[in-house]
Amino acid sequence: MLDVANLKVSYGQSEVIHGLNFTAKKNETLAVMGRNGMGKTTLFKSLIGVLPLSGGSIHIDGTDISKCESYQRVENGVAYVPQGRMIFPNLTVQENIETGMGVSKLKAIPDDIYALFPVLHEMRHRKGGNLSGGQQQQLAIARALVTNPKVLLLDEPTEGIQPSIIKDIANVLNEIKKMRDITIIVSEQVLSFTMAVADRIIVIDKGNFIHEDLRDDVDTDKIKGYLSV
């Protein structure tokens, strides 16, 4: 489904992602773990096209999207939930979701979105900026889902969110995977969350992948060692 080969990203002269290779299959949830500053967000931004690649290629279902602009990548089936949510603060909840519907040509917000996130239905006429952090995270996921993505990218969805909501978000991700044929790629620092959602875990360090394991074979102490500061 998603096929990344020799991906390189640079800020000016300094290369921060050094030729990453990975593939993610349909119905697979892949977690990218790593400490702060190791390149998780940079990797995600380059996948959605906010940052340009300095080398390598990204294929979705065989289509090369590495030269596309963000909106074209969304048209090709990538959806992005950024770190810090980045919902539109002055638009209502409903309008926030509708911004994603231009791509999928949906006329109305599908019922299954509100079924996943009942709180968004309750608050649909409020401004996005007046929601709590956890609600904004749900809104950002809903906005990404209405583009009918093949690959859903979530950059640190648990950052700054209260623990009870973190569990909800894990449940939602598992629910989404059951409902749709979708690849989910999530970056994380919270191991318990990762263990609840991921099929496969990759550890990133200084722009390189240093460890990869299926969830069922994961040695949690080893991963904790990679994540400790």
Binding site: V50, Y71, V74, Y80, M86, T99, G100, G102, V103, T147
Partner: peptide
Amino acid sequence: VMSGAVGI
């Protein structure tokens, strides 16, 4: 930036 990333 985010508008581009939701497909606008």
